[in-house]
């Protein structure tokens, strides 16, 4: 019996070590591949200029500033829009709905389902609404679609943070005569602030890296957008289109853009990690 348990322990310890190692190797390989293929094409020029002339045929002539700027405009605006919805919803769940535990559980389940829906479905949904309204592909449409995509993520991440606020702090707040709204915005918000910021960054990372939701809604263009009605390029779609080129020098630009996108997400993730409250 004890011998069996000993072997069991050894076996699963070994198994988890091997699996962990495999995952790390895959990650290292992935990062190595995009660096090996993209680093030579990465230059100040490609990140600071929009494409011009023969860019898409030879990989020469300008860069992909259109995609970098487009992605930033889109993701930042979508995050702001989503935040304005997500914070009140997450606070509502934890301040009002805790009195109705069944409804709360149902809401959380529903949001988890929304979180799990593939982004192409959000893209198709956004596209339908666009057609219905008679608008064309645009930055504005992309922002709304991406905001819809990341809202369940932001709400549930905020919700998980707010859930950890001790009941004693709520009691202290109400005992002093706070209303529910004051408890929400003055106590919960401050107490959970680092975690809420993490939730926002998580959602930003998801939003800036997603291709499928902007495929039908934001369009693609060589220009940096100047208004919400303009179509806009994005990094994920730029990578997608460049990779489908037969020319290797054009493909390598996709890898250069991958490096840029990975760096952005790396910075966001590290910041999120640093903000996470210890304990």
């Amino acid at each position: 019996m004890t011998l069996r348990r000993k072997w069991e322990e050894k076996f699963f310890h070994g198994l988890s070590a091997i699996v962990t190692l495999l995952i790390v190797l895959v990650l290292v390989h992935l990062v190595w591949t995009i660096i090996a293929k993209g680093a030579s094409s990465l230059s100040w020029k490609v990140v600071s200029e929009p494409p011009n002339g023969s860019f898409y045929f030879t990989g020469e002539g300008g860069g992909f500033l259109n995609a970098i700027a487009g992605s930033f405009y889109l993701a930042v605006s979508a995050v702001i829009l989503s935040f304005l919805v997500s914070l009140p919803v997450a606070l509502f769940l934890n301040i009002y709905l805790i009195k109705v535990p069944r409804l709360l559980t149902a809401c959380r389940f529903f949001l988890d389902v929304l979180w799990g829906i593939p982004s192409i479905v959000y893209g198709a949904f956004g596209f339908l609404i666009l057609m219905y309204l008679g608008y064309r592909n645009s930055l504005g449409a992309g922002i709304i679609t991406v905001a819809t995509l990341i809202s369940p993520i932001m709400i549930r991440s905020m919700d998980e943070v707010l859930k950890t606020i001790p009941i004693g702090l709520q009691e202290a707040s109400y005992a002093l005569g706070s209303t529910k709204t004051e408890t929400a915005f003055k106590i919960f918000f401050k107490q959970a602030f680092p975690g809420l910021a993490t939730a926002v960054l998580l959602a930003f990372g998801r939003g800036i890296g997603d291709a499928a939701s902007v495929l039908f809604t934001a369009g693609f263009t060589d220009l940096v957008p100047h208004s919400l009605g303009d179509p806009t390029a994005t990094l994920p779609l730029f990578i997608f289109y460049q990779l489908s080129s037969p020319s290797e020098s054009v493909q390598n630009l996709a890898y250069a853009a991958s490096i840029v996108l990975t760096l952005i997400i790396l910075v966001v993730s590290i910041t999120a990690r640093l903000l996470k409250p210890k304990r």
Binding site: P166, E171, G177, K190, Q191
Partner: peptide, 29 residues
Amino acid sequence: RQKMGLLLQRPYPLPMSIYDNIAYGLKLK
């Protein structure tokens, strides 16, 4: 509730400065 001050088993200071912990209730009033 403002007629009653509450002291719990464990202290739960509000997530703000020492000064604001006391000012908070005053502002609510």
